Amino acid sequence: MKKKVLAAVLSLSMILSTGVVAMADETKDPSEVKVGVITDVGGVNDGSFNQSAWEGLQRAQEELGITTSYLESSTDSDYIPNLETFIDEEYDLIICIGYQLADAMREEAEANPDQKFAIVDDSSCADLDNVTCLMFEQAQASYLVGYVAGLTTKTNTIGFVLGMSTGVMNEFGYGYCAGALDANPDVTILQNNANSFADTAAGKTAANNMIADGADVIFHAAGGTGLGVIDACKEAGIWAIGVDSDQSAVAPDTILTSAMKRVDNVCYDEAQAVLEGKYEPGVQTFSLVDGGVDIAPTVDNIDAEVLKKIEEVKEKIVSGEVEVAKDKETFEAKYGDVYQLDE
């Protein structure tokens, strides 16, 4: 009788355990673990968002001994086929890069409840037990580079090129404009929505128009489109500000700084979590406090006095003394309707 009761208790325990932590698992043999990343239309060589994610997985392969791979999406019609390719190949974790993959990922996650997924910059699938949503306080990083731009400009005119106007992407704009205005209330901020993350020509045209209107520092939050922004700034001999990764290598004499989101570290950590059986669904948010966002470590082109002020501002953000506006209501309450690219 005691054995039967014990068996029943153990069975109930296993059921409850499975229900509470549906995706929990034991540590696996690294040689048996496969993690894949699916890019948005910017591609894996965008010098920014997607590339940073892939670099994180490459490091995971080198240091953890797992197998990693990527699939590029040329158009949004590639999302489902790419997801299904990794599902069919029994990847342990599929990481989707960018909110544009959210709908496709939800469809596949609901159809494949035992498949683990992660997505960067989207929390709409947080209700699913097999999805972890990786979010960033990008407005904080943008505030810092905006502050740099406001203190660096000689013409009191700076620029901002956005890849696409969405809630997540506009956080870059609110932060940048807030930082620039706090550093220099006299600054004028020229703005453009390129409406693409993969149109370098549109990025270059937008930047050239701003340069013609006197901008001497231009920040892009536009993925591959931003490479066109950087190219225009290089040709004109003005400063460009990169995004997501440290883009100084793209144009060392042109990149003033970059607003970094450590997508590489986050993808590495998610791969490690799967390897160690510690994968957890839900929302994770990364900020300046935990190093999830920051300005780039390459600071050669930033004036020493400006850099000193940036360090002071960082401390105020971390302490809560400075609260960075990241939505329309909060931004306009302090700065008015300066930001022009809202949805």
Results as ranks from 00 to 15, higher is better:
residue 3 K to S: 11
residue 13 S to H: 07
residue 14 M to Y: 05
residue 18 T to M: 12
residue 19 G to S: 11
residue 21 V to N: 02
residue 26 E to K: 15
residue 29 D to Q: 11
residue 29 D to M: 08
residue 30 P to Y: 02
residue 31 S to P: 09
residue 31 S to F: 10
residue 43 G to T: 03
residue 44 V to P: 00
residue 44 V to A: 05
residue 44 V to K: 05
residue 46 D to N: 05
residue 47 G to F: 03
residue 48 S to A: 08
residue 49 F to L: 09
residue 53 A to L: 01
residue 54 W to M: 10
residue 58 Q to P: 00
residue 71 L to D: 12
residue 72 E to M: 11
residue 73 S to C: 09
residue 76 D to R: 11
residue 82 N to L: 08
residue 93 L to V: 04
residue 95 I to N: 10
residue 96 C to S: 15
residue 99 Y to V: 00
residue 100 Q to I: 05
residue 103 D to F: 10
residue 106 R to D: 10
residue 113 P to Q: 13
residue 119 I to C: 15
residue 122 D to I: 03
residue 124 S to H: 06
residue 125 C to T: 05
residue 128 L to N: 01
residue 134 L to C: 04
residue 142 S to L: 08
residue 150 G to Y: 09
residue 155 T to R: 07
residue 156 N to C: 03
residue 160 F to D: 07
residue 162 L to D: 03
residue 163 G to C: 02
residue 164 M to H: 10
residue 166 T to I: 06
residue 169 M to Y: 13
residue 171 E to W: 08
residue 189 I to C: 07
residue 191 Q to S: 03
residue 193 N to H: 02
residue 196 S to C: 04
residue 199 D to K: 07
residue 200 T to H: 08
residue 200 T to D: 14
residue 200 T to I: 15
residue 201 A to I: 06
residue 203 G to W: 03
residue 204 K to E: 11
residue 210 M to N: 07
residue 218 I to W: 11
residue 221 A to N: 08
residue 232 A to P: 01
residue 245 S to Y: 14
residue 258 S to R: 06
residue 259 A to P: 10
residue 262 R to Q: 09
residue 264 D to F: 07
residue 267 C to F: 07
residue 280 E to K: 05
residue 282 G to W: 01
residue 283 V to M: 07
residue 285 T to E: 13
residue 286 F to E: 00
residue 290 D to L: 01
residue 291 G to L: 14
residue 296 A to Q: 01
residue 297 P to R: 04
residue 300 D to S: 15
residue 307 L to N: 10
residue 308 K to A: 15
residue 309 K to S: 14
residue 315 E to T: 14
residue 318 V to P: 06
residue 323 E to G: 09
residue 323 E to N: 14
residue 329 E to I: 12
residue 330 T to Q: 11
residue 333 A to S: 13
residue 334 K to Q: 13
residue 339 Y to N: 13
